[in-house]
Nucleic acid binder design. Structure first.
Lengths: 262, 262
DNA sequence: CTGGAATTTGACTCTGAGTCAAATATGCTC
DNA sequence: GAGCATATTTGACTCAGAGTCAAATTCCAG
């Protein structure tokens, strides 16, 4: 009898509903501003029901982040299947990264929350693990490409595969994070943060001596192939008219919430 | 009569006291865990007095961050005075960066808080500006070196000075931030996060074609000069025996705080 | 000393995360 | 489909902690 199966499915659907609504509110209001009473209202369940799924608010937010991270991992894995020189394959991952940033322009805002001290210990071990797993998927993809590259002689083995991955991760996350900062955008007169991220990835690869170097290969052609072969369904914001500045954000949106007196 | 002068001085001293204690608590407990009642106790003033100095908790934390950022800017400016090839001077800034990270191993944890949505609008405009000023000092130092480098022909003008600065900032902040993540440290088998940061900065400079390239110059000698000339007073953790892994941190420390029932 | 301004204080308000006993729904048996 | 047991849902409640403000205290000029 499929009764309990159906219940399980319904439970999962509701969890999805909660996570989805939470994601929306989170982006609008920030972590502090995310109010579980409001969330309960929005999903038309009582607050207690939310706590049937998530141990704490942090646990919920971690679930939101993990859902996005899973998509990221999926994009990475698709990118890794691209055929070509090792650096082209890593480039496909870079494109996946940007594709993800376009689909989830606000993910990095949430990702930052996860790095805040004391976040993780408020989350349940299961969700911590789940998040770790998705993160590992991303790292594994990169690690495999780096190892291949070194084996084929495209990439000097001066650094360990781990160190190479770290460089690329640090640069990519750093670029995304810094791009959120309107102040930095102004100071460095960045027009398109996503393009800057791509450039930065190229710099690292060139710095690593990862052949073929930027100057020695038609990477524009590679990009076209990546788009066509790996992400045929994608809408390419990057190709939009030059005015487009995707992902521009102001500092925050929370309505003041202070000054409730009188 | 110097009465009001003295008062002003006392006020500033107290503000320093508050910021100092807040910094200590902040590192131990995180933002959420920082309790203003506890802070008031620690500084032996009433809570209301804290609010004479800071508009909100965020305002206070911003002040903590700004104090550290000021030191960072000072180190940057000292580094910029180093004489040598343009890339050596930028390297001195890189060393300043690490020196700062050694002196404030937890700054980047706080820096992350500043990036959280809704933080800034809770802070007073004065402190926002103060923070912006210190940040700008850092950026200005870098920008000047980059411009010099391009003028002297050491650095190809393929990218604008702003873009070059952005690359270096993104890489540096990304490295510091990612290094906080024990999970990433494990996945990439990083031994010394600070060394990884230095390496990453080199990669970017090499990738930019900033001469002399890493392979063409004795940068170990440069480092020795930087240490001797720019930071003679510093204790060089990097030279400590190989076991030292400076800046290692566990995920968080807040005592559980939940489960207050019964 | 004294009156009045400036500062400090901590009891109080209010918001919102998390709890839990009561209410309701579900499923099973006869 | 009535009766019972179990599982789920609910929302009023608790409690912590940020921010307030009227009273108490300190400071200073005359």
């Amino acid at each position: 009898m499929g009764t309990s199966e159906r219940k399980q499915r319904e439970r999962e659907e509701r969890e999805e509903l909660i996570i989805g609504q939470a994601a929306a509110l989170l982006l609008r209001e920030g972590f502090q501003g995310l109010n579980l009473d409001v969330l309960a209202q929005a999903i038309e369940y009582a607050k207690g029901t939310i706590y049937q799924h998530f141990r704490t608010k942090e646990d919920l937010v971690l679930a939101v982040a993990t859902r996005a991270l899973r998509e990221r991992a999926q994009l990475f894995e698709r990118a890794a299947a691209f055929t070509g020189r090792s650096r082209e394959r890593m480039r496909a991952v870079g494109v996946a990264c940007c594709q993800f940033a376009i689909a989830h322009p606000d993910y990095f805002q949430i990702d930052l929350m996860l790095r805040a001290q004391s976040f993780w210990e408020q989350a349940s071990p299961e969700r911590r693990q789940a998040n770790g797993r998705e993160g590992e998927r991303c790292t594994r993809v990169m690690g495999a490409i780096v190892t291949d590259a070194q084996r084929m002689g495209d990439l000097p083995a001066r650094l360990t595969p781990g160190a190479v991955s770290f460089s690329l991760i640090a640069m990519t996350m750093g670029s995304h994070t810094m791009a959120l900062e309107p102040e930095i955008q102004r100071l460095c007169s960045l027009a398109d943060p996503l393009k800057a991220t791509r450039i930065n990835q190229d710099l690292v690869c060139d710095g690593l001596g990862w052949r073929p170097l930027l100057a020695d290969w038609d990477y524009a052609a590679t990009d076209r192939r990546i788009r066509a072969e790996v992400f045929p369904e994608a809408v390419w914001l990057e190709d939009a008219p030059p005015i487009a500045t995707a992902t521009r954000r102001t500092r925050g949106r929370t309505p003041s919430r202070r000054k409730a007196s009188r």
